[in-house]
């Protein structure tokens, strides 16, 4: 248990270092990248709470992020702007205007509630069917966001969210989410779930109701995704349903998988690594597009490179960079080994 504290401490230190580092550099671009990274961190660590403990891949995560973003939007867009931003909004909602913090919590709760209802029957499915249905769920959430014009402005961009997310807030939320993920991992539910990942029959024999455990983890993950969505919404201030779909799903899964889905450390490491790679590649793409040969035609290069990297990681290190042990655990072990040697 002691190493869990150490892990929390180190990971929070990493978050703080990112935050402070980007401030020290004092370049607006870096500030934006760091904030984006911290928001991604919230989402990826959120996904880890489900995927890492249950061992099931979920594609629906970004959909819950979208639910959170739209929930917070409806709750916070100033009343006088709502007529323009959401012309078809239901009458009683037009007067709603709550503080962004409250809206963020509400975003998490709405995402969690939706997850609780739709996911209950899905958690009983065997591994492949569960993954497939989570993919279908993503498509359905997208369809709903894309078409429920009254609440989302349909496929068009929704604008007018107050810009309340800045880098320090993102850092604080990221740190809290890391602690929650570590606590959940060490909780009874988390431990039983991880046991079920290794051996479903044995865990069931211990009296673990596996579908129920998975369901709890799924709800927690959806809650965090909803919070992350609200956080992002108030950073970017305008978005369309397109932002919560396959491309983003691919990105967060890449982050988690490259880092190592089984550990929170892996989620953090993967997010940082992939964000840097992503920004670097986007920069290259932009530079290519600026040249005569590219001429604005280079799209998809980033994704191609990331896809290749993901396949390569799966072949060489299928568990990701941190497949089993959290950073705190690794450090205490090596120290103990050194003590034994000396």
């Amino acid at each position: 248990m002691k190493h869990a504290y150490l892990t929390a401490l180190i990971l929070i230190a990493v978050v703080a270092a990112l935050a402070v580092g980007s401030q020290l550099l004092g370049i607006r671009l870096y500030d934006r990248i760091a904030t984006n990274l911290l928001i991604s961190l919230v989402l990826v660590v959120g996904l880890q709470t489900f995927m890492g403990n249950s061992g099931l891949l979920s594609f629906a995560h970004i959909g819950f992020m979208g639910l959170g973003a739209y929930t917070s939007a409806v709750l916070t867009i100033p009343a006088q702007m709502k007529g323009m931003a959401l012309p078809d909004l239901y009458e009683f909602m037009t007067v709603l205007e709550v503080s962004p913090l409250l809206a963020m919590l509400a975003a998490g709760v709405v995402a969690a509630l939706v997850a609780a209802v739709v996911a209950y029957p899905l958690m009983r499915l065997s591994d492949a069917a569960a993954v497939i249905t989570s993919f279908a769920l993503l498509v359905v959430l997208y369809t709903v966001m894309n078409n429920w014009s009254a609440l989302t402005n349909g496929p068009r961009t929704l604008f007018g969210l107050p810009k309340t997310t800045d880098m320090p807030i993102a850092a604080v939320v990221a740190a809290i989410v890391i602690v929650i993920a570590l606590l959940f991992k060490e909780s009874r539910t988390g431990k039983l779930l991880r046991a079920s990942r290794e051996d479903e029959v044995a865990a069931a024999a211990l009296g673990a109701n596996i579908p129920h455990l998975r369901w709890r983890a799924f709800i927690l993950a959806a809650f965090i995704a909803g919070v992350g969505g609200a956080l992002w919404g108030h950073f970017i201030t305008s978005f369309a349903p397109k932002a919560f779909y396959l491309k983003e799903t691919f990105l967060i899964i890449t982050m988690l998988v490259i880092g190592g889905a089984n550990t929170v450390t892996g989620a953090v490491a993967g997010t940082i690594l992939v964000t840097f790679a992503y920004e670097g590649l986007r920069g290259t793409e932009g530079a290519l597009n600026a040249t005569a040969i590219g001429a604005g035609q280079v799209v998809g290069l980033t994704e191609i490179v990331l896809a290749l990297a993901m396949i390569a990681v799966m072949i060489v290190k299928p568990g990701g960079l941190f497949p089993n042990r959290e950073i705190g655990h690794i450090l205490t072990r090596t120290r103990r080994k050194k003590e034994i040697v000396s």
């Binding site: 998809g300 191609i304 896809a307 993901m310 396949i311």
Partner: peptide, 12 residues
């Protein structure tokens, strides 16, 4: 994951 990545690879 690899087949998902391969799908992304082909699309892009």
């Amino acid at each position: 994951i690899t087949s998902f990545a391969f799908s992304n690879l082909l699309q892009n």
